[in-house]
């Protein structure tokens, strides 16, 4: 008997689902609003602001930790981000590399703790701050390569697009929602494509080919972005070709 009740509920649900599917509903606008995550307690309260924050122009020697940072490039510590899908936490080796020579803070509680871990050869159990669901495949490398290395944008702006203004935080805290709609809000945008014409690699017969040559100085459209709905990108008002970011399901879900 239960089975029948369950079945009818399922059928009703499906009906509801299909009717809402077919109705011509206006999709909710894509959200880009900030959504502050919970404050997270870390084994060592790492001061991002001190390391990555902007220098205090009135303090050229950078002596007051409360007033200015050192503008260290994000990629100096999170070095995996440009080579790897995960940004990774630097090995303690990296922290020690600098801190063994910085006597001024050697006896502060946080640095003492750091050296305790180092001497015990024990990894620090950092908590994950930006933790995507397990079915999402986010790739740091590609984003960094595209925006930092191919488009020459400032690192802090590029990392900050998803991670927020980390340079003003001590322990990092999630600032963006990182929900799918939030990702899509970027991936659905038209981005200018640098190649002219059909930027694919073309061989002598005019077919796309991996052995063909690339249009002059161009990056192939295909190699830069997918065309949503298989539509070839149209030129925008200024005449530049545009394409959307990769946005079919299997770009991130597999």
């Amino acid at each position: 008997m239960h089975r029948f009740i369950r079945l009818s509920i399922l059928l009703m649900g499906l009906f509801a689902a299909s009717s809402s599917y077919s109705a011509d509903v206006q999709l909710a606008p894509l959200t880009t609003a900030d959504d502050l995550g919970p404050a997270i307690e870390q084994p060592i309260e790492f001061p991002h602001n001190r390391h990555a924050g902007l220098r205090n122009p009135n303090d050229p020697t950078n002596s007051d930790p409360l007033k200015g940072g050192m503008e260290i490039n994000c990629l100096y510590c999170h070095t995996y981000a440009r080579r790897d899908s995960v940004a990774g936490i630097p090995p303690i080796q990296k922290c020690i590399g600098c801190h063994q020579n910085i006597e001024s803070v050697r006896e502060t509680p946080r640095i003492k703790k750091l050296f305790e871990y180092w001497e015990a050869k024990k990894a620090i159990p950092w908590k994950k701050v930006h933790d995507l669901p397990d079915f999402v495949r986010f790739n740091h490398e590609r984003h960094i390569k595209r925006f930092v290395f191919q488009q020459n944008r400032p690192v802090q702006e590029v990392c900050g697009a998803c991670h927020g203004d980390v340079k003003t935080m001590t322990v990092a805290r999630r600032q963006k929602s990182l929900a799918m709609g939030w990702c899509i809000s970027c991936h659905e945008k038209d981005h200018p494509v640098t190649a002219s014409g059909n930027g694919s690699l073309i061989n002598a017969e005019g077919m796309p080919s991996s052995m063909g040559s690339l249009a002059a100085n161009g990056v192939s459209i295909g190699s830069q972005a997918y065309w949503y709905g298989f539509k070839k990108p149209a030129a925008n008002a200024a005449g530049a070709e545009v394409a959307k970011g990769p946005n079919d399901c299997s770009s991130c879900h597999y």
Binding site: R146, V219, S220, Y254
Partner: peptide, 24 residues
Amino acid sequence: CTFCVQRIRAGERSVKNEGRILRD
């Protein structure tokens, strides 16, 4: 079966960084 889409995506990403497409 996904045709090992994880391998395809990884390959695509790495050649995008080089500005080319995957070779056979």
